[in-house]
Amino acid sequence: MVDTPEVGRLVRASADGDQEAWNELVRRFGHLVMAVIRSYRLPPADAEDVYQTVWLKLVEHLDSLRDPEALPGWLRSTAMHECMRQMQRRRRTVPVDPQSDAAVNRPGAENIEAAAMRAELRLALRDGLAELTEEDQALLRLYALAEPYKNVSELLQMKTGSIGPTIGRSLARLRQTHALRRYLGTRPAAENQKGGDRLELAPLD
């Protein structure tokens, strides 16, 4: 967990203009910001832009962030918002077309039908995630990345022991979203049965 008094001191010192304190914040929280960004699987250049933008924004929010406990949450939600914006931008310049989508038509991939089903599941998962709270989204994205619980604990300010059960509840909520229910409803019954256990988010890329 984050050493709150120490983080508070660093935030206050940074707000007072101490570059060393700022560098220490970057050192402590940089990998956590990157973990959130990685979970969106943006192209590397976009991920770097988002990373830099998050820190540029923090520079301006130092004064309003005197409560150090708010810092990890602020970094997480700012990184998520910037990733979403970046994805919106991408969506405008890179149309998703199942006929030409590299992820669907990867050479050597399974047959077209299976690829189309995977693409469908991926879309359902993406839409389903969007229906959930920011907390559920953050947790499930980190889970999909197989991020170590230690990092998840630090980033989301959760006790390590409560992460597993919370993931279970978040996955249950994901299954209950309109997008997932619609997806599961269109699958044959046998598939549907299996589908419940296979919602491991792996095809989220």
Binding site: G17, W22, V26, G30, E48, Y51, W55
Partner: peptide, 19 residues
């Protein structure tokens, strides 16, 4: 993490304004 990214994050601090 890439050194370049850390440097960029550290350099962000130079944009701090107290106006």
């Amino acid at each position: 993490m890439a050194e370049k990214l850390i440097r960029a994050a550290e350099a962000a601090f130079t944009w701090r304004t107290v106006d």
